[in-house]
Design a protein around this nucleic acid. Structure first.
Length: 259
DNA sequence: ATGGTCGATGGTCGA
């Protein structure tokens, strides 16, 4: 079971790039972020024509997440529990029925800039809510995959120029500590379980020629429960997608599970 | 040091 996360940065503007990547990468499951689309305006038919089920949790203008799956989906949950007043569409869950049942959670964690400030407070509160949901799901002892745009640079080696990020919401100590708390619950960060060292990025800004200069950061992650980590056979960043026609500023990251 | 690029929107804002 190949499971990918991809911040698409506007699914309507990116539909051709998305369809091409689906043909090339042939993922079984895709967790999309920043669809910037409502459920009604999501271009679902073009994706369904390729054999994918489509579950969306959209919002007008900003945010929005979705799950695409070639395998059956059950028990879709569309919001992160813990704050009924939160109107932002940043979380979607479903159980994928493959050889094994795998619970996938697609997340678009708040950016949090400028920090400090109310947006940063929202980010940290959202991470605390996510921690509570992870604890709930870990109790099921099922294979779990938490994949998405975390807006977290976990370590200095995950940025080409870490010194430029010291005051940023993506790299501040409180952000990284909250991310470590997730790992300390017993989750495995898929990429770092397999690949060590600097120079691996998943996002390059559109500005200041960040891509040709390889001025990137690694902020798109897949966190695995112990039962999912035991099934992982591969993990990759589809870096070449950033060089394509009209690309997102993020690229897909994926895992293969023996499930 | 400064300014730079996108997408959705239609009013600038979020990243």
């Amino acid at each position: 079971m190949k499971i990918a996360t991809f911040n698409i940065n506007g699914v309507k503007a990116r539909i051709e790039a998305l369809l091409s990547w689906l043909d090339e990468a042939r993922p079984d499951v895709v967790l999309l972020q920043e669809i910037k689309s409502t459920d009604e305006t999501f271009p679902r038919e073009l994706i369904e024509d390729k054999g994918y089920r489509v579950e969306t949790h959209g919002q007008k203008g900003f945010n929005g997440v979705a799950i695409l799956s070639r395998l059956p989906l059950e028990d879709v949950v569309r919001r992160l529990p813990g704050d009924e007043a939160d109107e932002q569409s940043r979380w979607i869950e479903a159980t994928v029925i493959g050889d094994r049942a795998v619970r996938v959670c697609g997340l678009y964690l708040p950016n949090g800039n400028p920090a400090p400030g109310p947006k940063y407070d929202y980010k940290l509160a959202w991470m605390a809510r996510m921690e509570r949901r992870v604890i709930e799901l870990l109790a099921t002892e099922e294979p779990l995959v938490f994949a998405g745009d975390y807006n977290v640079i976990p370590q200095a080696e995950d940025a080409a120029k870490p010194e430029a990020w010291t005051e940023d919401a993506l790299f501040r100590p409180e952000t990284r500590a909250a991310f470590r708390r997730l790992l300390n619950l017993g989750l495995t960060e898929a990429f770092r379980a397999r690949v060590q060292g600097p120079g691996h990025y998943s996002f390059w800004d559109y500005q200041a020629q960040a891509w040709p200069r390889n001025n990137g950061i690694r902020i798109d992650h897949l966190l695995l429960s112990p039962q999912a980590a035991d099934l992982m056979t591969d993990v990759q960043i589809d870096r070449d997608v950033r060089a394509g026609e009209k690309p997102s500023d993020h690229v897909p990251v994926w895992i293969e599970l023996a499930a």
